[in-house]
Each structure stands twice: as structure tokens, then as C-alpha cells.
Amino acid sequence: MSQASDFYYRLPLRAGGQRPGSHPGTSHGNGQEFVTHASLMSHPDPRRLDVRASLRDVRGEWLVRVMRQRVGVPVQLVADVSASMLFGARRSKLAVLADLARAIGASAFRVGDAAGMVAFDTVEREDLYVPTSLSRGVGHVMAAQLENPALVEHAEAGERHRGDPVEGLLQALQRLAGRQCLLFLASDFHFPLARLDEALDTLSRAYVVPVILWDPAETEPPPANGLIALRDAETAARRTMWLRPKLREEWRDAVAARRASLQTFFSNRGLRPFWAQGAFDADAMSEYFFEANA
């Protein structure tokens, strides 16, 4: 079992809710952020009495401090477990996704948030569903689901069946539609983006972090010229090609174009993707949230 490296995260916006936590909230309560003064009659909490403000009040009322409390926010991992996630030169993208799941569980537990997971390939994978929990080990439970050998066998068998992963994503997101949460959408996004807008529209109240998992072997072509056998990771379609400098250049251009299209797609929705290539870097994820809160 891999060690879970946690990361720092805070929502850069105010969240609703009554459960105390570490995120900026919209509700009034036993917090440390001063909002305003109010009459003791309207807010009968003598512990918050402000004597100096009361003596200065022109109406002669007793005034109490009204504070805004911090709240807890559920953390959800939406995991792509389609066949292309099995690819990887040293470690599969599915293994990197399991590292992310462990890190999310450890990070959420450290700040007192509940964490859970939904998964999809061409359909929602109900067998991999992990309900939100405040448990210390929820990250390891999610990772164990993603590292289960039966999942690999299912994905390999699924290579023979064409399908739209966005359809599976839409099904999985029905559990989360309209909920306020911090949501990590983890995938290699090796599918058409045309319907992804429809999926993201269901997450209007969530703070979405797209996590793009790529492997160096798919972004950088082999260095030597020669005959290579290629296989589509999703459909298992095979093709033989002669690798030469021109094809290598086209390969890199296609990767750059796809990266740019993903960046543009998410930017147009006000989202900033997090790129994980070959491994998950917890420090880089912390930096992502530092920049979001700057």
C-alpha cells in the first residue's frame, strides 16, 4: 500500500452549510470573522456583547458582535476508469489515480471534511461507489477500489466495446447534481469534448478541479525510427506505422493541439486544469490551491 501524501486546499469562495470546518462560510455562528454589530434582542448571545460599541450606540442598545463561521465542505473524486486509463509506461494512469484518491482522503481528513468517490467508464460504475465519510481511511478505501485486479480485467474486456465515456460521466454525476462540494474530475479526457459541457452544467454549485492524467509515453514519441505497432487504448483497434521524423513531429503537434484545446475548453468555463503526467505531485496540487486563493 502506498503512503498517502496530503496537500493543502481551501475553497476560494464562500460555501454554505452549518457543519463547522475550515472553509470560508456564508452562515453566521461561532466563527472568528467579524461581520457587523446587532442588537442583543435580535441576537441573544451575551457572550458576544461588545461593551465599547454599546456605549457609543446612539440608540443606547446593547450590541453584540455577529461573526461568520467557517464550514466543512464535502470532497468528491469523480474517477474515469475507462480502458485508456490502463495505459502507462512505468505505472498506469489508474495507479496514479489511486495515488490521488489516497491524497484526497488524507487531505480531507486532516481539515475535517468528508470524502467520497463516484466512478465511470461508458456507464456509471456503481460497484466502485464510495459514499462520503469522515473516516481516516476513506482515501485507502477509494484507492483499493481503483487498484482491484477485477477492475483491470473489466477495463480490458471493455476495450472490445465502443462507448462514450461522457455518457458514463453524466450517469455518475446524477448523484452529485446540484450539490455544493469540492469536486476533483480525474480523467485523461481522451474523448470528444462536445458533450462535456452538458456534464459540467450539472455541477453548477460545485467547485470543480479538472485533473488531467497523461503518461509520458503517450505525449512523447519513441526516439528511434522504425516500424511500430499502435493500439487504441479505448477501442483496441490496431495499426502499424513507420515512425520517422515527420511522423514524430506530427505526434508532438497533435499532443500540443490537444493540450491547448483542453486548456481553452476549461478556461472558457472559468476552470483551471491540474496536469499530472506520469505521477501525482501533492506539492504541485497545494500550489494549485495557493494560486487559486491568491
Rank of each mutant, 00 (worst) to 15 (best):
V75F: 07
S133D: 07
Q18T: 15
R205L: 13
Y9E: 00
A4G: 04
Y9W: 05
P12R: 12
A282M: 13
R205D: 15
L40N: 03
R259E: 09
V51L: 05
H190Q: 11
T132W: 03
T132M: 04
A114P: 05
L182G: 02
A236H: 03
G139E: 03
R65S: 12
V141E: 04
S261L: 10
V152S: 04
K246T: 15
N225S: 14
V75I: 09
G226Q: 11
R14M: 12
S135K: 15
E33H: 11
E159A: 10
R102Q: 11
R195Q: 13
A98C: 08
H140C: 10
G21E: 02
R239P: 04
G21N: 08
Y9M: 08
D188H: 09
D197H: 15
F109L: 06
S261H: 14
F274S: 00
H190W: 10
L49V: 14
N148M: 07
M67N: 12
R47T: 12
E287L: 10
Q180M: 09
G21F: 08
L203N: 01
R19H: 12
A177I: 08
S133F: 04
S92V: 10
A257K: 14
E291S: 13
M285I: 05
A294K: 13
A284K: 13
W62F: 13
R90S: 15
R252P: 06
L77K: 03
V255Y: 02
M285W: 03
Y129F: 14
L49G: 07
E167Q: 11
Y288C: 04
T26L: 15
R195V: 08
N225L: 11
W251N: 01
D121P: 00
V152A: 07
L243P: 02
R59G: 14
G178H: 14
Q174E: 15
N268R: 14
A254W: 13
D188S: 06
R52W: 08
L128G: 05
H190V: 07
A108F: 01
L146I: 05
D197T: 09
V66N: 02
A194N: 14
A257N: 15
A157M: 13
A206F: 01
S92F: 06
W251Y: 13
G270V: 11
R248A: 05
G72V: 05
L227I: 12
F290G: 08
A98H: 00
E153S: 08
W62N: 06
R259Q: 13
V64S: 00
P20G: 08
I212E: 01
G168M: 00
M285L: 15
G226Y: 07
K246M: 15
